[in-house]
């Protein structure tokens, strides 16, 4: 697979970032930078803190009670924990796709229009319709659902639902997209559709993807981070991680010796 030769421009950066659930550390002193308009994958065994790191970037962990953190995370050089930063605006910039597709119990149209409306992107009916159509076209769902946009989103297949969630996230025009095992619950055909989609959007959006599927990480990403027990073991170009890792644990993991 062809890898882009773009230069590494830092978009997100964490500095000594640690995260605790109930006082127990889930992430320990993470220092990592995610490149702009490239795909970075985070790999590691279950429970190593991948998802926690991902959810820290859009501060979704704020919703979980009894959690604390130390260190800092910067987006475009500005701390996301700064008092002046609004989580609402942050989350508008940083979209997210979850492992389990989670469309709202609304129609297909309303699912996508929701983000446009709550972010006050536009209130014009025709603009909203246009944006919904665009988002559905990007996610490749348009041809499948254009005739019944008012149908319930829950009636779509699992793969379609996940692409709908992608369209929903893209409709608010995020700069960063966080993907938490987006194909974790999908069949191979749906998975490849999602992967194609990631390929088409990565030119314009910074993507961070958490995955268990090492082939997927190798196929999709420009950079790969390997996390073990809450610590960042190695972060480098994907080709390097998979062919010539500098740390023994990484090599053991990518060659399938544990995890």
């Amino acid at each position: 697979m062809k890898k882009s030769n773009k230069t590494f421009v830092e978009k997100i950066k964490s500095e000594d970032y640690s995260f605790y659930y109930n006082g127990k550390p889930a992430l320990k002193n993470i220092n990592i930078s995610f490149p702009d308009k490239m795909v970075t994958s985070i790999v590691g065994p279950s429970g190593c803190g991948k998802t926690t790191l991902l959810r820290s970037i859009n501060r979704l962990n704020d919703l979980i009670p009894k959690t604390t953190f130390s260190g800092d995370i910067f987006l475009d050089g500005i701390s996301i924990f700064d008092k002046g930063v609004s989580t609402v605006l942050l989350r508008r910039k940083v979209g997210m796709i979850f492992q389990k597709s989670n469309p709202f119990p609304k129609s297909i149209f309303d699912n996508i229009a929701f983000g446009i409306k709550v972010n006050n992107i536009t209130n014009d009916k025709h603009r909203i319709e246009f944006e919904v159509e665009q988002a559905l076209k990007i996610s490749g769902l348009w041809s499948e659902v254009k005739d019944n946009l008012s149908a319930p989103a829950m009636g779509l297949s699992g793969g379609q639902q996940q692409r709908l969630c992608l369209a929903r996230a893209l409709a608010v025009k995020p700069e960063i997209l966080l993907l938490d095992e987006p194909a974790g619950a999908l069949d191979p055909a749906s998975t490849s559709k999602i992967e194609e989609l990631i390929h088409t959007i990565k030119k314009t959006i910074t993507i961070v993807i958490v995955t268990h599927n090492l082939q997927q990480a190798a196929r999709l990403s420009d950079y790969t981070a390997f996390i073990l027990n809450g610590e960042l073991v190695e972060f480098d170009k994907t080709t390097k991680i998979f062919t010539n890792p500098s740390v023994k644990q990484t090599e053991d993991y990518v060659t399938g010796r544990f995890g």
Binding site: L63, R92, N102, F114, V118, A169
Partner: peptide
């Protein structure tokens, strides 16, 4: 997941409660 989805989309808590 539904709550998280709406929050992650940039909805405020009030919007999540009233619209979802």
């Amino acid at each position: 997941e539904i709550r998280e989805a709406s929050i992650a989309l940039g909805a405020t808590k009030l919007q999540m409660v009233s619209k979802i």
